[in-house]
Amino acid sequence: MAIIKRPVIKLQLSLFDKIIEGIGFLLLMTLWLCVYVQYAGLSESIPIHFNFSGEADSFGHKSDIYSLPMLATALYILLTVVNNYPHYFNYLTPITPENAHRQYVIATRLLRYLKVLVVVIFATLISITINY
C-alpha cells in the first residue's frame, strides 16, 4: 500500500469556528458544574444502566455520576487533538493542493460539531440519571 502525501496546512479558525469551540467548551464546563452542584442532593444509589424500556436495571454509588463528565471530557480532548491533524483523515475525494484547504476546513468543522454533540449527549445522560 502506497503512502499518500497530502498537504499539511495550519488552519486559521474563523469567527464561526471559534464560536463553536467556545460553545462546546462552555457546555463541558457547565456539565461539570451541574454534576458538582447536584452531587450533594443525590441519593446514595443512582442508576448506572437503563434497559430498552428506559427503566433503570443497574445501580451504583452516587460517586459514579462523575464517570460521565470524565468520559465526556476525555472524548472532548481526544477529538480536539485529532482535529489538529486533518491531513490524516479519510476523504471521499482525492486531496490536492488546490482543494486541501476547503476539505480540511469542512472536516475539522464536522469534528467541532461532533464535540458539541458529544457534550450534549452526556448532559442528557446526566440529566436523566440525576432526575431518575
Rank of each mutant, 00 (worst) to 15 (best):
M1H: 15
M1L: 14
A2S: 15
A2V: 13
I4L: 01
I4Y: 09
K5S: 11
K5G: 05
R6V: 02
P7K: 05
V8W: 04
V8P: 06
I9M: 04
I9P: 00
K10T: 15
K10V: 05
L11C: 04
L11I: 09
L15S: 13
L15R: 14
F16Y: 15
F16R: 09
D17H: 08
D17I: 04
D17T: 11
D17E: 14
K18L: 05
K18N: 12
I20L: 08
I20S: 07
I23N: 03
I23T: 02
F25A: 12
F25L: 12
L28I: 01
M29S: 12
M29R: 10
T30H: 08
L31M: 13
C34G: 08
C34Y: 07
V37N: 03
Q38D: 11
A40W: 10
A40I: 12
A40T: 14
G41E: 10
E44I: 10
S45V: 08
I46G: 00
P47Q: 00
H49L: 10
H49C: 07
N51K: 11
N51I: 09
F52E: 13
G54T: 03
E55G: 13
A56L: 09
F59S: 07
F59A: 01
K62D: 04
K62M: 01
K62T: 08
I65W: 04
I65E: 00
L68R: 00
L68D: 05
P69K: 02
M70Q: 15
M70F: 12
M70C: 15
L71N: 14
L71W: 12
L71E: 08
L71Y: 11
A72L: 04
T73E: 06
T73F: 07
T73L: 13
A74K: 14
I77C: 03
I77G: 08
L78M: 13
L78N: 07
L79N: 02
L79P: 00
T80S: 06
V82T: 08
N83F: 10
N84W: 10
N84K: 13
N84T: 12
P86R: 00
P86E: 05
H87W: 03
H87T: 02
F89W: 04
F89E: 07
N90R: 14
Y91G: 06
Y91A: 02
Y91I: 05
P94K: 15
I95Q: 01
T96I: 07
T96A: 09
P97K: 01
P97E: 06
P97H: 09
E98N: 11
N99C: 00
N99V: 03
A100G: 06
A100Q: 06
H101N: 09
R102L: 15
R102C: 09
R102E: 15
Q103V: 05
Q103I: 02
Y104W: 10
V105L: 14
A107G: 01
A107I: 08
T108H: 10
T108A: 02
R109M: 06
L110Q: 13
L111H: 14
L111G: 01
R112K: 06
Y113R: 06
Y113S: 11
Y113C: 12
L114P: 00
V116S: 03
V116I: 14
L117F: 07
V118Y: 00
V118P: 01
V119H: 01
V119A: 00
V120M: 10
I121C: 10
A123N: 13
T124S: 15
L125M: 04
I126Y: 02
I126R: 00
S127P: 09
S127G: 06
I128Q: 11
I128V: 14
T129R: 01
